[in-house]
């Protein structure tokens, strides 16, 4: 594991840059655990202070130190994105591999359900959930809902690869070697879909964080919970750009760009590294 990291850092510039960018954001988000103030409280600092030695990122119109506030917001949003991505990856891998390999009626039923999820419009459903749950809708509930909608396209992608793998001779060989279906799927086929899983993981995080921002800006989430979306919601509702508290918008946007750029570079370089063809070449085939 360590050797893999060392090789990647040494020979892959994209990976190094991505790692640095994501590292910066991750450390920044992790700092929230040492926050001297509770980020949900307001008027704990003088409002509308520009960035200075005392308030590195300035303060907002609600009297919050933006450094600590954004730190908590990024932690929440990143955790949210990772939760959605992990949960929906699990569903899409399971559905995709099983549908592709087992085929027949299993495939037809799974793909039928899959297509329903593709067709259902997610945004109105999220709004509906918000009206039903109101402030009980915490970010974990929302992550669960998004995870339920974030898998179908990727499951189809994985299924198409699994369909090809099903007819490779090594699959039949594995069956005649007495391997169980679970073993065939997880040990023989999974390495071949990992590149898809990685790149869609990144896409999925992007999508879910973007979704959260959209909902929050419109006020359809618990706006007292600091996230990237609610930071922008409050900035917007206090007309930050008009009032001149530009740092309230610019700083979070810069951080978001850094996050996504870093994740993107990591996904691209990891992809190349775990691609079966490049793996084989490294093994010397």
């Amino acid at each position: 594991m360590f050797a893999v990291f060392r090789d990647l850092i040494r020979y892959n510039l994209e990976f190094t840059i991505g790692l640095v960018l994501v590292g910066i954001v991750a450390i920044f988000a992790a700092l929230s655990f040492f926050s001297p103030v509770d980020p949900t409280l307001i008027y704990m600092a003088i409002p509308d202070q520009p960035p200075s030695a005392q308030y590195w990122f300035g303060t907002n119109s609600r009297g919050q130190d933006l450094f600590w506030h954004l730190s908590a917001a990024f932690r929440n949003s990143l955790m949210f994105g990772i939760t959605v991505a992990v949960l929906s990856r699990i569903i899409s891998i399971t559905v995709g591999l099983a549908a592709g390999y087992l085929g027949g009626w299993v495939d037809r039923i799974l793909m039928f359900i899959n297509d329903i999820f593709v067709a259902v419009p997610i945004f109105p459903i999220l709004v509906l959930f918000y009206f039903v749950l109101r402030n009980n809708m915490d970010s974990f509930t929302m992550a669960l809902i998004l995870a339920c909608f974030g898998w179908p396209f990727d499951a189809r992608l994985i299924r198409s690869v699994a369909l090809g793998l099903k007819h490779r001779e090594f699959t039949r060989h594995a069956v005649f070697a007495g391997m169980s279906t679970r073993k065939v799927l997880l040990e023989e086929h999974l390495p071949y879909v990992m590149p898809i899983v990685f790149s869609t993981f990144m896409n999925n995080m992007l999508w879910s964080i973007g979704m959260e921002v959209t909902l929050a800006v419109l006020g359809f989430t618990n706006i007292n919970n600091p996230t990237i979306g609610t930071v922008l919601y409050w900035a917007n509702s206090h007309s930050a750009m008009v009032v001149g508290t530009w740092w309230w918008i610019v700083i979070p946007v810069i951080l978001i760009v850094i996050t996504f750029l870093g994740l993107f570079l990591l996904a691209v370089s990891m992809n190349e590294y775990i691609d079966p063809r490049s793996r084989l070449r490294r093994m010397g085939a």
Binding site: D7, L8, R10, Y11, N12, Y273, S278, R281, R282, G284
Partner: peptide, 9 residues
């Protein structure tokens, strides 16, 4: 002539 992650061949 190839070079993959330090494996030169």
């Amino acid at each position: 002539q190839m070079n993959y992650y330090g494996v030169e061949r």
